[in-house]
Design a protein around this nucleic acid. Structure first.
Lengths: 145, 145
DNA sequence: ATTACATTGCTTGCCGGCAGGCAATAAAGG
DNA sequence: CCTTTATTGCCTGCCGGCAAGCAATGTAAT
């Protein structure tokens, strides 16, 4: 068991990082979740909305709206799944992939610049912890849902 | 320079973690930032609002409101600084420290339980990276402000 | 087979809460 | 004066969530 003080610091730093990162513009007029969902779709290929909501950890209602908006912008396309016409397969369009690349560059620029100013050891520690942090996100998602 | 793909994963996991963590209740009817600001005040002792806003990375306007709310609840107290009557020194009250302890327990419970289910190595990596993540948050705050 | 009912996946309207931000004000300092 | 510090009013945007609805699917009874 990890002690409460450490856990509290972990919570705090995650909140602050998220605040800082959300404050940076996405370009293309996308909101943070829109950019993030577009990224997931571009990266993981065709997906049903339910799976998508699970992966990204967003409310299904919200996801439906985000997907609607991204479709309006022609960044993704919704195709019915022939095997079950209730489910909607979403997939990034060519324009969507291009926008995603640009957004990714923009959104990683600031954080990349800051990382470069940290000592090498710190950078390495963060990179090393990345998979573990992803496991943690999955575990959190799994429990409280 | 770290590659874009890795930076993107870092961004993503931070967003998802923040979403999950923000979704867990604070108890006491506090919003996430209220709880977080109370924590900072309880931990760092008497502070002026400007320093506080810098440390926490919150908008000064927002901070003023949060402090107002916490004062209404008698969790902190505002004292004028005798050396400069413009600045307000905020400090946690006894009740504030108690509430903070309870909130801290509540808010670390979920994350602690999840950490316990991860392999020891992952937990260690996350703990080790904690100071580095805090440096990163500071660096981000410093640049884009 | 046809009808009836229940379930699942997605959408939409509506509302509420949290947070950022601009502008105006007041008070204190230099 | 001009700047700094805090507060307040007002507006905006993002996100969550309930509830209702629709279409497709599954299941069971007659």
């Amino acid at each position: 068991m990890t002690d409460t003080e450490t856990l509290s610091r972990l919570r705090g730093v995650i909140s602050r990082l998220a605040r800082e990162l959300n404050a940076t513009a996405t370009g293309e007029g996308l909101t943070p979740t829109q950019a993030s969902v577009l990224g997931l779709i571009a990266f993981r290929g065709p997906l049903g909305l339910t799976e998508l909501a699970q992966l990204e950890g967003v409310n299904p209602t919200m996801l439906s709206r985000v997907v609607g908006r991204l479709t309006e912008l022609a960044l993704i396309q919704r195709d019915p799944n022939p095997e079950d016409l209730r489910v909607i397969q979403v997939e990034a369009t060519e324009a969507g992939r291009e926008v995603h690349e640009r957004v990714k560059l923009l959104r990683t620029e600031a954080i990349g610049a800051c990382l470069d100013e940290l000592p090498d050891k710190s950078v390495r520690q963060i990179i090393d912890a990345l998979p573990a942090l992803e496991e943690l996100a999955l575990a959190l998602r799994a429990t409280h849902s």
